[in-house]
Design a protein around this nucleic acid. Sequence first.
DNA 1: ATAGGCTGTCGAAGCGCTTCGACTGTTTTC
DNA 2: GAAAACAGTCGAAGCGCTTCGACAGCCTAT
Lengths: 337, 337
Amino acid sequence: MVTLAEVAQHAGVSASTVSYVLSGKRSISASTRRRVEESIRVLGYHPNAGARALASSRSNIIALMIPLRTDMYVPVMMEIAIAVATTARTHGYDVLLLTGEEGPDAVRRVTGSGLADAMILMDVELDDERLPLLRATDQPSVLIGLPADTAGLTCVDLDWGATGALCLEHLAMLGHRDIAVIGEAPAVYERHTGFAERTLDGLRSRARELGLRALHRPCEGGYDAVAATLARILDERPGTTGFIVQNESAVEPLLALLRQQSRAVPEDMSVVAICPDQVAVQASVRLTSAGIPAQEMGRRAVEHLMAKLGGRGTDEVVLLPPELTVRASSGPVPSRS
Amino acid sequence: MVTLAEVAQHAGVSASTVSYVLSGKRSISASTRRRVEESIRVLGYHPNAGARALASSRSNIIALMIPLRTDMYVPVMMEIAIAVATTARTHGYDVLLLTGEEGPDAVRRVTGSGLADAMILMDVELDDERLPLLRATDQPSVLIGLPADTAGLTCVDLDWGATGALCLEHLAMLGHRDIAVIGEAPAVYERHTGFAERTLDGLRSRARELGLRALHRPCEGGYDAVAATLARILDERPGTTGFIVQNESAVEPLLALLRQQSRAVPEDMSVVAICPDQVAVQASVRLTSAGIPAQEMGRRAVEHLMAKLGGRGTDEVVLLPPELTVRASSGPVPSRS
DNA sequence: ATAGGCTGTCGAAGCGCTTCGACTGTTTTC
DNA sequence: GAAAACAGTCGAAGCGCTTCGACAGCCTAT
């Protein structure tokens, strides 16, 4: 391995000069800089990460804790993770991948060992056990998701309440009065991950304001589970004409079932999904949907972290506004004939 | 931050003794060990990662390069990544997440800087530009995927050829003579990622052996693309009774389309998918499928890497044997009535 | 009894980098 | 024209750990 000292010798300068060329923390004459850069190139020098971290007590690594579970919508997680990694790189940071498995211990380990300079936590529960640790340490962190108490924390998330409300409004505007909400799997609500509950709250309170009925049913993914849920819904509320679907793996089964029951979408039934745009356009009916800005969330989380690392950060909650794209799955309520 | 020296002082021993307690590289009396461990606990000591890396020239980090693209089946990538991360942890390693974005430079950066001790590459193309670098360095690495030339490399992958053959055999055994293969998106073949081509090769050569016809059509995911592909297939080969689907996002559209055309599965048409079991059971017809052992691949990759890091490793190609699970989507060919 | 071999511990020398203070010339400022 | 400021460079002191050689004390085999 080529070291700083060798580069210095090759360029005929001292080691500190090379270091300053690299970091730009002191001014260097153009000629010296050029000579040093040339030596670096010729020798194929790469600074040693460990030595750097030791001397500067900064590792240029941010830790990303992703959930282990696979009952969440995985592609969204992946998209966030990739956005985090690529954005971090543009700031000269690498990303350390931690799984939720270790739980709070991972936070302790990473902050204690100086392995990472900062961390991003995904899949935050309303009352997450990692939060006290985060508040206690002075290591910068950003949550993707929204816990119950955000004091002293920075959070980035989609405004799920507004998302629910937006979907409902859209259906209301089209004249639908009886709306069914096909939610996430029961386990998601039991875990109190927040986003599902917030969506529901936003949606329900808007329903109340607009004076229409919203029936919520949690639902596992897959054909059979959706069939059972749909049957129950139509049994309880035969007048249902609009669906809001939050569980992506319920979307296609629902469309198939409606088709099978000769209920046309959007003529007889309207469906609004909360899902990534890619899913919405690939469905058998192009879905009217509220998108999930996964990339944007990852990117914003990193930007905030960088601001904090640069001392310019503030604790703050960023809720991204939802966007609804009208496609082919929603339309005016059928005239009662 | 608590340092080794402080622990040593607290325990009344020298720093090296604490170090040896931690690493177990020299024998330590039971009483001393106990005293040191107690001090570590009391002071909440965590070894500094940078200092460790510098002194030992090992970082206890492995780099994982995942693809950026989203045209591959993302959940599989994610499952592999998570399996890699959790398996690595059981060996005391952390995982650094690199995206394909940087390309070969990432390999240079990581090996040059000593950031990671080893790397795992996913989404390896047949003639991948990262391979020469990998061969040139002495840093251990494992590929998930199979390049054209595996000399000097360790690879872990599903035996895609056998997988294709297995699917075909299953349909052949049920009496199907005209089989259509709905492949991955054209871009996947153009990129020469290997797995799609290998599947096809294995499948075709078995078809030849068994004397039946296999018609392959690449296909984008989504309803419209599948509809077009299906129409073309049935036009060219009206006698088709069996489908092998490699593109997961074509599965559900295909089932929907067949239903719509009043072709019953499995009575009129048999469908075999190559997809994770989870997808197979969640489909509208429980699918006969060859699974994709994502976890196993991630786990095996790490195990091999650990063997290499421990000096016990060998260059070798590990092809996991496919497993076919018969479910409700395949049955005997309909009697010509 | 004594040489040789263990065991358990310590001191010290780095690992490769960052960063502080110091120093030498040049400019600027009044 | 002297004082102050600045640009450009260097030397040296660490950062916190691992690891090597040394050594004291003890046990075993002669």
